[in-house]
Design a protein around this nucleic acid. Sequence first.
DNA 1: GTCTATAATATGATAGAC
DNA 2: GTCTATCATATTATAGAC
Lengths: 186, 186
Amino acid sequence: MPEKITETDLIHALSGVFRTYGYEGASMALISQATGLKKSSLYHRFPDGKQQMARAVAHAISGGIEKQALAPLNGPGSPKARVKQAAQRLNTFYENGNKPCALDTLSIAGDQGEATLAELRESYDALIKGFTNIAIEAGTKPKAAQQRAIRAIVLIEGALVVTRITGDSDSFKRVIKELPDLLCDA
Amino acid sequence: MPEKITETDLIHALSGVFRTYGYEGASMALISQATGLKKSSLYHRFPDGKQQMARAVAHAISGGIEKQALAPLNGPGSPKARVKQAAQRLNTFYENGNKPCALDTLSIAGDQGEATLAELRESYDALIKGFTNIAIEAGTKPKAAQQRAIRAIVLIEGALVVTRITGDSDSFKRVIKELPDLLCDA
DNA sequence: GTCTATAATATGATAGAC
DNA sequence: GTCTATCATATTATAGAC
C-alpha cells in the first residue's frame, strides 16, 4: 500500500528539481523521479500542475529563509556572531555553493507565472530585510545598511553562478566567510 | 526570394534567445521566431540542432568578450580609464543589466552538452584573464589581482540576477560604476 | 492518496520541393 | 539557403481503477 508522502518532503524534493533545472528544465518526468510520485499523484496534490508546484516551492523558500536561515539574526550574541551563524545556515542551504538558488534558476523567462515571480521577490525582500536590520543594529545608518544588504545578496547570487560555471566553490566559501564583516563592520 | 541571413545576425539572434530563456526554455519555435528562419533552415545551418546552436552562441560570446568588450583594456590610457571603457561596453552588452548573462542561464543543468559548458568556461577564463592583467598593471600583485578579477565577475553575475528578480537595475549600474576602482585601486 | 492508461499538444528533428 | 509537410517522441495534463 503506497504511503502518503509528507508535504515537507514533497516540497523539498520539488525544490531540488526546480533549483537545479530551472522551471522549463524541470519536466514532470524529472519531478516524478525526484519525488517518487507518479505524475497523476502530483496533479492530485497540485491540481494546477507545474506552475502550482513552482509557486509552492517559491513560497516555501520565502518562508524558509525567514524562519530557518535568518533565524539566528534575531537570536542572542553580537550582531557579527549572529551573521556568522546565519551564514553557516545559508552555506548548508546552498550545499557549499553547489546547489543553485531558486532566485536565479526560477526567475529565468518562461511559463512559471507571475505568482511564482512574486514569491521570489518576497524571498528577496525577506533577505534584504534580515540583512538590513542586522547591519543597522551593528551601527550602520539605514540607507547604507540596505546597500550592504543588497551587496550581500549580489555576492551570494554571483558566487553561486561562478561556482556553477567553474565547478570551484572557492568564491562562494569566500563570500560566506566575508558576510559578517560585510554587514557589520564600520 | 528569401535572402541569406548573415552568420553574425543569426548568432546575435540566437544569443538573445538562449540568454533570455536558457537552454531548455529556448524552444525551436522561439528560436525560429527570433531568427526569422524556419526550423528546417536552422537545421541546414546547424545540422546538430539546438546543441550546436548553443555551442555556437557560447563560442561567439567567448570570442566577443575578448575582442569586443575587453578590447579597451589593451588600448591607450591609464588602467582605470581603460577599465571604465570596458565597463561601458559590458553595460551595453548586458543592456544596462536587463539582459541575462549566458554564463548564468546557459549553465543551468540540462541537455546543452559538455562542449557548450566548456565554451562558457572559456568565456569566464577570458574575463578573468582580462581583469587580472589590468589589475596587475595597476599595481596589484598577481594573486590578489586574480581575486579582484573573480570578485568583479561575481558582482556582475550577481547584479544581473538581482536585477532580473527585482526589475531594478540599480545594483548592476553600481557594479559597473565601481569596476574601475575595484580592479585598479590600491 | 496513489496508481495505470490515455489524451492532446509541443518538442526536436528530417525529407524533399523550390 | 529557405521553405512546407511530416515524423517520432516528450511534454503537460486528465480519467478512472484501487
